[in-house]
Design a protein around this nucleic acid. Structure first.
Lengths: 196, 196
DNA sequence: GGTTACATGTAACTAGTTACATGATTAG
DNA sequence: CTAATCATGTAACTAGTTACATGTAACC
């Protein structure tokens, strides 16, 4: 799952590990990351050929900075290090971009993964994005069906309250998803409005 | 976390692993369990002295069944096995009951754990239960404060939509928790109404 | 001159999951 | 007789976390 987050962020521009960690934290409601997970993940992604890395020595003023710094203010050592040791700047490869597209479409039965998929679904074509939303919707509907089939059978007030909150949350989530889907269909009429 | 679920269920009555697994699934919105997690957990709990086990041979009609079967319909081999091999029936120990009380009060910054704590919080004295709710509340409030301090800074419509849903969900959860807390205070006036 | 921020990494732990191995009993 | 259900368990994997080790450089 971290792979999805890392590839998504790198698709926007090259970054080194420390910076990636900061972005991840502010990404979606504090997607929990830690260096202990991130650095091994980056090593794994590099071994798999999804990303490539370049060691960047702080003082060298060569072309290391990439899309992450759009304004190149005259290169007057504006990239002044601020760093204590060499950084490893990662860049997504072509294979990595393909992998990202796959990760963006799989499953959707996992809340945390779906958050990440939503955070980067702008990289998907509209029809694939709609398919993702519908997949998530189907999952929520099946959860709802399960809850209705098995209506609590506990008399404990705390358990009952929890179940009820769950149902309200499910309804709220479905309404929200339906709004997302409707918006998507508005911006992209699809095959139906045409006489085909 | 499984420890909490297992001890909570065993506090209600003795059970063997397979039955525990079934109860866990129907417990709180499908608390995900699997034998691969449950059996090692039971072994660990037994090593720690929190539970004890008795091997039960299906055909023996001795006193194996406990609180889980309240109606003892004349013992006319009503406990007819239905089982293929010997079961290991677990019972919570005194130490285990103490441990359960601890587990019911720790943290509350973990959504999944809090669900379990709520499912078994009836075993806590009212003041400890209130403290648990307040702890959870404080956690949600701090999440809300973080979200407000850092207001999105993304222009992507999907990310913005997700953030907004998160905030609505937080508000809904807080309102729900406040209701729980208010109910608790109504049933247990506490030290304030008295002149102390 | 001490704290904070930058930067990369490893080790041990937490909390699970899926798939497999094994076998008895019961219902169709 | 065969499929489903009951019953216990292991192995390998997923996806993280916390704590530690190491070091530079900027801020006050």
């Amino acid at each position: 799952m971290l792979d999805l987050a890392v590839l998504g962020l790198l698709k926007e521009g090259d970054l080194h590990g420390y910076e990636l960690n900061k972005r991840l934290k502010s990404l979606v409601g504090g997607y929990a990351t830690s260096f202990g997970a991130l650095y091994p993940a980056l090593a794994r992604l590099e071994r798999g050929g999804w990303v490539s890395s370049t060691a960047v020595v702080p003082h060298s003023d060569t072309d290391e900075q990439a899309a992450s710094e759009p304004a190149r203010r005259n290169r007057r050592r504006s990239t002044r290090p601020k760093s204590g040791r060499t950084r490893k700047v990662y860049r997504i490869t072509e294979a990595g971009e393909g992998h990202l597209l796959e990760l963006l479409q799989e499953d959707a039965n996992n809340e945390r993964r779906f958050r990440l998929q939503l955070a980067f679904c702008r990289f998907l074509p509209t029809d694939r994005r709609l398919a993702l939303f519908e997949l998530r919707r189907a999952h929520l509907v099946s959860l709802q069906a399960m809850a209705r089939r098995d209506p609590v059978h506990s008399t404990d007030p705390y358990v009952r309250s929890l179940f009820q909150r769950d149902q309200e949350r499910l309804e709220h989530d479905l309404a929200w998803l339906d709004r997302l889907i409707a918006d998507e269909r508005t911006n992209w009429p699809g095959p139906e409005p045409n006489d085909r």
